[in-house]
Design a protein around this nucleic acid. Sequence first.
DNA 1: AATATAATTAGACATTTATCTAAATATCTA
DNA 2: TAGATATTTAGATAAATGTCTAATTATATT
Lengths: 99, 99
Amino acid sequence: MSLLNMPFKALSDPTRRKIIQMLKEKDMTAGEIADNFSMAKPSISHHLSILKQAQLVIDERKGQNIYYSLNTTVFQEVVNWFFNIKGRSGGFENEEDKI
Amino acid sequence: MSLLNMPFKALSDPTRRKIIQMLKEKDMTAGEIADNFSMAKPSISHHLSILKQAQLVIDERKGQNIYYSLNTTVFQEVVNWFFNIKGRSGGFENEEDKI
DNA sequence: AATATAATTAGACATTTATCTAAATATCTA
DNA sequence: TAGATATTTAGATAAATGTCTAATTATATT
């Protein structure tokens, strides 16, 4: 699988995008994340696993809990794909903002 | 389906991302696009249909041909999602480049 | 009008995906 | 060590996805 394919597939699911948005605010345990959804915990665990495989998140066990946090590196690569499409304008309105 | 879900799903397939990259360079007919893949034409037609539903591309018939082109508006909305996650830094290295 | 070309639609099929419940693993605490 | 809590893994299943061939639609040409 290509480098970008896994993160793109991972981001194609709304639950996983919501998780990413939550982790933007703060690191969270699997349980805290699951509490924000009306979905069985194993389902969330599965989503976290896909985000982890895509290297969009990092996990670290602390005692009984496993904390999840964003891995901005792979994020940047996906963003770069869009920048490349848009001629590196990145959506800025002014010419000065372009690279 | 949420506004962003369709484009995200559409971009989760590598063939469709390749099509987007091709359309970045120039507008193309369905046939020209299909010639770049070792895939049956109806399969490409299906991919184009998904990109069209997601409003990532626009189609226009000219005689026997149907020309496809990028619709940057919806693109921008997807880019904005990433900007929002990344605190609107957009991946620029320098503070000055931020909005 | 008949034929050729460009593209889509229809329908079938195998694979992948998202979800669930039940069971297993890991850690903490009494 | 036994029990409680947090999380994952296993296995099942329904729905979605990507691909194909065959048929259809739309346009152009002779």
